[in-house]
Amino acid sequence: MIEDGKDLRRGWTTGACAAAAAKAAVSALVSGEFPDPVAVTLPGGQRPAFALAAQEKGEGFARATVIKDAGDDPDVTHGAAISATVRHREPGSGIAYRAGPGVGTITRPGLPLPPGEPAINPVPRRMIAEAIREATGSEDFEVEISVANGARLAERTLNPRLGILGGISILGTTGIVIPFSCSAWIHSIWRGIDVARAAGLTHVLGATGNASEKAGQALHGLDDIALIDMGDFVGGMLKYLRKHPVEKVTVAGGVAKMTKLAQGMLDVHSKRGLADLEALTALARQGGADEALAGEIAAANTVAHAFALAQAAGFDLGALVAARAWRTAAKALDHPGIALEILVFDRDGALRGRCGFAPAAHSDRP
């Protein structure tokens, strides 16, 4: 992959690392020898080999550790020590998965696994099972996955909000980390929606950042479980909600990101492009701004500056941005059974624009 002229290196998911550690440990439990490196088969057929960082064999158990290499992706688990401890089970009993230190436990419904289960996702479980079968021809083992400092790492993820407590999740649908793909974030958005729906909530709020989230939560009095850490992925949230609806959806964000949404961008990250001040000027003119204010907006340093100029002139630029952002979001949501709302906040959490709830059929509003 190329990013800003640099060749980016791919890495391995926690699921792939856990499968490699489990295969090495079970091999040692059965044969007495740890394979190093140890190769595993990924869902796409690739067979990477992993070096072992640590190995231990004791009475009735074997343990192997792999260090996660996320390549050039800014992954919070890059460099984490992922260990698998395996023990024999009764013949015919199959695999039992356990959450060791640093791996979370699911406490809320709506996730791919029920409450009480260790947060080792379905695809990593299949990878682990296949790796163990490849090494032993059997599945009759207890597999405990642990992650050094996993509880601390989990504080930098969405796990606490999703009700995954005590550590990180073992994730990955391909085994491969693609740099800057943000797939983990997108999947966390989806899981947040699943958890909210399973809890019976009828209103969720997706926010681009902390200030808009807190302000939107206070405005509506929402529980934490209703808050979706949408970040820049407005489209990713709305398209999932189209197929997994709730009655009411609020999209909240700062003035710059909501201006980008108003201009048709469903990924509002700064790397995808800046808000267009010329387009914002044209919108202000359409809304009745005089030429003096239009000129000031066109010459503004930033969107926030443009909003300040409009506010000083007594012109409600936020309402225009919110209405146009609603149209973009409604087109992506495209579900008349869902009432959509847009909230625009400044960096201090003050409401600067609002387009109230209406069915998300994008032709409903001018």
Results as ranks from 00 to 15, higher is better:
Ala226Met: 13
Gly235Val: 04
Gly235Ala: 07
Lys243Ile: 07
Ala199Trp: 13
Gly209Phe: 05
Ala198Pro: 05
Arg191Val: 01
Gly209Ala: 12
Gly221Asp: 03
Ala215His: 02
Ala215Met: 07
Tyr240Gly: 03
Leu201His: 15
Trp190Pro: 03
Ala218Gln: 15
Leu241Ala: 06
Asp194Ala: 14
Ile193Thr: 03
Met237Val: 00
Leu201Gly: 02
Ile228Val: 11
Tyr240Phe: 14
Gly192Met: 12
Leu241Met: 07
Leu205Met: 12
Asp223Phe: 07
Gly206Ala: 11
Trp190Leu: 10
His220Pro: 03
Leu219Pro: 02
Tyr240Ser: 00
Leu205Ala: 09
Ala218Met: 14
Asp194Glu: 14
Gly236Thr: 01
Gly231Tyr: 08
Thr202Glu: 13
His220Thr: 00
Gly236Gln: 04
Arg197Leu: 13
Val195Trp: 05
Leu241Tyr: 04
His203Lys: 11
Ile225Asp: 08
Asp224Ala: 14
Arg197Cys: 05
Asp223Val: 09
Asp223Glu: 11
Gly231Val: 07
Ala215Phe: 04
Val204Pro: 10
Ser212Met: 09
Gly192Pro: 08
Gly192Leu: 07
Ala198Val: 06
Ala226Thr: 08
Leu238Ser: 05
Ala215Gly: 12
Met237Asp: 01
Leu222Lys: 03
Gly236Tyr: 02
Ala211Trp: 03
Gly209Met: 08
Arg191Ser: 15
Lys243Tyr: 15
Leu238His: 00
Glu213Trp: 05
Leu201Gln: 14
Glu213Ile: 02
Gly221Ala: 07
Ala207Leu: 10
Ala215Trp: 00
Asp224His: 13
Ile228Arg: 00
Leu205Asp: 03
Ser212Leu: 05
Thr208Phe: 03
Ala198Gln: 07
Phe233Ile: 03
Ala198Asp: 14
Gln217Ile: 12
Leu238Val: 01
Thr202His: 09
Glu213Ala: 14
Gly236Asn: 04
Val234Ser: 08
Gly231Lys: 05
Leu227Phe: 09
Asp229Gly: 13
Leu201Val: 01
Ala218Arg: 15
Asp232Arg: 00
Ala196Lys: 05
Arg242Glu: 04
Ala215Ile: 09
Leu238Ala: 04
Leu227Pro: 12
Val234Lys: 07
Ala211Arg: 10
Phe233Tyr: 10
Ile225Pro: 01
Met237Tyr: 00
Lys243Val: 05
Gly216Val: 09
Gly236Trp: 04
Gly216Leu: 14
Ile228Leu: 02
Met230Lys: 08
Arg242Asp: 04
Asp229Lys: 15
Ala215Ser: 13
Val204Leu: 10
Ala218His: 13
Ile228Gly: 03
Val234Tyr: 05
Gly235Ile: 06
Lys239Tyr: 08
Asp229Gln: 15
Asp223Pro: 11
Arg242Ile: 06
Met230Tyr: 00
Tyr240Asp: 01
Gly216Glu: 11
Glu213Arg: 13
Leu219Met: 11
Leu241Asn: 01
Ile193Asn: 00
Ala196Glu: 14
Gly221Trp: 02
Thr208Pro: 04
Gly216Trp: 12
Gly231Trp: 02
Ser212Gly: 03
Asp223Ala: 15
Trp190Arg: 15
Ala226Trp: 11
Asp229Thr: 13
Ile228Asp: 05
Trp190Phe: 13
Met230Thr: 09
Ala199Ile: 06
Gly192Cys: 11
Leu222His: 06
Leu219Gly: 04
Gly209Val: 07
Gly192Tyr: 11
Gly206Ile: 10
Gly231Phe: 09
